[in-house]
Computed example of a mutant assay.
Amino acid sequence: MNESDDEIDWPVGSTVDDFGALWYVSYFTLIPGVIAGVLANVVFIVVSQEVFNQRPTIPNLLLKYLAWTDVLNCTFGLVPIIFAYHLKIFTKGVCAFHGIVFTAFSVASQMTVALMSIERYIALVHPFFYFKHLSGNHKKIIIAVYSIFVYSAVSASLPLFGLNRNVPHPPNSYCMFDWADRTPNGRLVVYLNLLNIILCLLIIVIMNGILGVYMYRLRKLRPRLPSLSTTSGNNQLPIDSRDRKLQLQMTKLTLVVAVVFFCCWFLFSLRILTNQLGVWRDDGLDWFSSRFMTLNSVINPFLYVIMWKPYRRGCWMLLRTCLHYMTCTFVKRPTMTLSETVSA
C-alpha cells in the first residue's frame, strides 16, 4: 500500500491462469453473494415502499434509504470491481472510480445506521419530544439523509484533489484510499474516514446500549407506556397500543441492524488504524476485514425480512409471484396483492 502509482503494475487483478482452481472458488463465491445482495435489496425496496405508503413512519423511511444505499453499493461498488479483478482489467482509472464510489456508499451506510440509532433512542427514551418535533416531520429526516449523501460524496472525492490516493488493497481485489499514507494530506483523509467510522460506531454502541437496557427493563417490569397524543385541530388523537407495539418492533430491528453493523465494521476500522500507525501489518487480515465489511450490504435486507412480519410477508409474496411465472404457473400465484399482504 506504500507503493507509488509508478511502482504498481497496472492492470492488477488475477485470471484463472494465475491461481488455477482457486480462481473459480473466489469468482463463484463472490458473484452469487453480490447478486443475492442486489436482488434482496431491490425486492426489499419494492416492499418497503408499499409498507411506507401504509405506515409513513420515520423508521420505515430510513430503512428504505439504507436499502437504496446498499443496492447502489452492491451494484456500482462491488459488481464492477469483481469483474475488473477477476478479468484482470483493473486499471488505474477503474481503481480511482471504484475507490470513490466504494468509499462514498460506505460512509453513507455508516452514517445512516447511526441516524437510525439516534432516531430510535429519541423515540423510545424521549417520546414526548419525538412526537412533538419529529414524528410527523419527515422533511427534517430527508434533509439529514441528503446531507449525509452530499458529505459522503465530498469526503470520498478528496483523493481527486491530491489528498491521499486510491490504491489497490490486498490481494489487489478492491480500491480505497491508502491507509498507510503518512503525508500530511494523506493522513487528513485517513483520519477523517477513521473519525467517521469511530463516531458512528460510538453512537451505535451508546444509543443501542441504552435502548437494550430500556427494553430489558420494559420487558421485566412491563410498565404501561405513557399515553401520548398528537393534536389535530381541537381533537386529541391518542397513540394506541398498536402504534406503541410498532415502535418497539422497529427498535428491535434497529438493534439487530446495529449489532451486525458493528461486527462487520469494527475490525475494518481497526485495520485502517494499525496500517496508518505502521503496526500489526497483515495483508491476510486486511483482506478478511474488508470482505467482512462488504457483507454488511448483502446481509441487511435479510435482517429486515427476518425481523419484521410485514416485510417478510411482502417479500415472500413477490418471490412466489416471480416463481409463478418462472415455473410456468407450476407454483400457485398469491391471491392477495402486495398492498393487502403487507397490511394483513
Rank of each mutant, 00 (worst) to 15 (best):
M1Y: 08
N2A: 12
D6K: 11
E7I: 04
I8E: 01
D9W: 00
W10L: 10
P11T: 06
V12N: 06
V12Q: 01
G13M: 09
L22A: 14
V25L: 14
F28L: 10
P32A: 00
P32Q: 01
G33D: 03
A36R: 04
V38S: 01
L39H: 04
L39N: 04
L39Q: 04
L39D: 01
V42Q: 01
S48Y: 08
Q54K: 13
R55D: 10
R55I: 00
T57P: 02
T57Q: 03
I58S: 03
N60I: 05
L61N: 01
L61T: 00
L62G: 06
L63Y: 14
K64C: 13
A67Q: 01
A67M: 12
T69E: 03
T69L: 08
L72Q: 02
N73P: 00
C74Y: 04
C74G: 00
C74D: 06
F76T: 00
L78R: 06
V79Y: 01
I81E: 11
I82Y: 09
Y85M: 09
G93R: 05
G93I: 01
V101Q: 09
T103S: 11
A104I: 04
S106W: 10
V107T: 09
A108Y: 07
A108N: 06
M111T: 12
T112M: 14
T112I: 14
L115H: 06
M116N: 07
I118T: 09
E119H: 03
E119P: 00
R120N: 12
R120V: 13
P127A: 02
F128S: 11
Y130I: 04
H133V: 10
H133M: 11
K140W: 11
I141T: 15
S147F: 14
V150A: 15
V150S: 09
Y151C: 13
S152E: 08
L160D: 00
L160C: 11
L160I: 10
G162L: 02
P170R: 03
S173D: 15
S173H: 09
Y174C: 07
Y174T: 05
F177W: 11
W179R: 04
P184Q: 08
N185D: 12
G186P: 00
N196Y: 03
I198R: 07
C200W: 11
C200A: 14
L202N: 09
I204K: 04
I206D: 11
N208F: 04
Y214K: 13
L218P: 00
L221C: 09
R222S: 14
R224S: 13
L225V: 04
L225K: 05
L228I: 07
R244N: 10
Q249V: 10
V256C: 13
V260Q: 07
I272C: 01
L277E: 12
G278D: 06
G278W: 03
G278I: 12
R281N: 12
L285F: 12
L285W: 00
W287E: 14
S290Y: 14
S290C: 07
N296E: 01
V298Y: 03
V298H: 05
N300A: 14
N300I: 08
Y304N: 13
Y304M: 08
V305Y: 08
V305A: 15
W308H: 15
C315D: 07
W316C: 11
M317I: 03
L319M: 14
M326G: 07
P334S: 08
T337H: 12
T337N: 05
T337S: 15
S343A: 13
A344C: 06
